[in-house]
């Protein structure tokens, strides 16, 4: 999950900016640290060779330099930030080969639901995408806030109930990646990691066809069951009954997920059994 081993253009750009910024700052920081240690060492009280200058308490030139150095660094980095923010706006499209894949992600307590409205399928805790295609995410939450993050694809974004956030990504290489929620959301939070399978664009339709044959159906009823608090160890897949399901969730036509009152013991995070309430 190394951030410096990006598997898509967004992550690559993010990490380039990250590395560039570090180097810009290191150019200032390293000499400064060196100077601190050198001055501290040379001007130690026991060093008789060092010249004691108690009157050296002001110098216009020094002041100008010490305001200018950080200011110039910030101007440079500010430019990086401005350009980077615009180029890497999560909502900006990321062109890819083939037709874009629309994915609607819903963070549930405590699992991820991925709805493919065009393919009429849905998966839990596994995200399967074709390599090279633009991935067009719409995200919301069934209950509390979460953050959708696939480190090696870049740019995380919050999911919030009653709101839709947007994110565009692209995965360039086939393989298995990991995704997660990067915002604490309750007791089952650490189990919100999910698998990302990047498969070849040619086998993607096959995967869709196989998944569409699943018996389980995702509709309002089964969604309400799914959104109850609990951890999903398996990786269920669904046929999507109504492609508007995501809108129903995001517009709160399906009310927000219940809290712990309805929590059943099965699938509950490991617990000492006590609940002070």
């Amino acid at each position: 999950m190394n951030l410096l081993d990006p598997q898509g253009p967004v992550a690559a750009a993010n990490s380039t900016i990250l590395v560039d910024s570090v180097f810009i700052m290191l150019a200032i920081v390293v000499p400064t640290i060196f100077a601190i240690l050198a001055f501290a060492f040379w001007f130690r009280a026991s060093n008789t060779k060092a010249r004691f200058q108690p009157g050296f308490v002001y110098s216009g030139r020094v002041e100008m330099v010490v305001w200018a150095i950080p200011a110039l660094t910030v101007i440079l980095l500010g430019g990086v930030a401005w350009i980077g923010s615009h180029q890497l706006d999560p909502a900006a499209p990321v062109p890819g080969t083939g037709s874009p894949v629309r994915i609607q992600a819903v963070s549930l307590d405590w699992k991820w639901l991925f709805i493919y409205p065009d393919q009429r399928i849905a998966t839990v805790n596994t995200l399967t995408v074709p390599a090279g295609a633009e991935l067009n995410f719409q995200l919301t939450s069934s209950s509390v806030m979460n953050t959708f993050f696939i480190p090696q694809l870049g740019s995380m974004i919050y999911t919030m109930n009653g709101m839709v956030t947007r994110l565009n990504l692209r995965a360039d290489n086939e393989g298995k990646l990991k995704g997660m929620s990067a915002h604490f959301s309750g007791d089952g939070f650490p189990d919100m990691m999910f698998d990302v399978n990047v498969i070849s664009p040619l086998s993607f339709p096959d995967w869709v066809a196989t998944t569409a044959k699943t018996d389980a159906v995702l509709n309002e009823e089964s969604y309400k069951k799914l959104m109850q608090q609990g951890i999903e160890k398996g990786k269920p897949t669904y046929r999507l009954e109504d492609p508007r399901l995501f809108n129903l969730i995001a517009t709160q036509h399906i009310p927000p997920g219940p809290g712990p009152e309805l929590m059943s013991d099965a699938g509950r995070p490991h617990s000492g059994g006590h609940d002070a309430r």
Partner: peptide, 15 residues
Amino acid sequence: MSMTATVGRAHADPH
């Protein structure tokens, strides 16, 4: 060192 140092007491600030 090409810094201009003011000499004298601590508060001998040119301001």
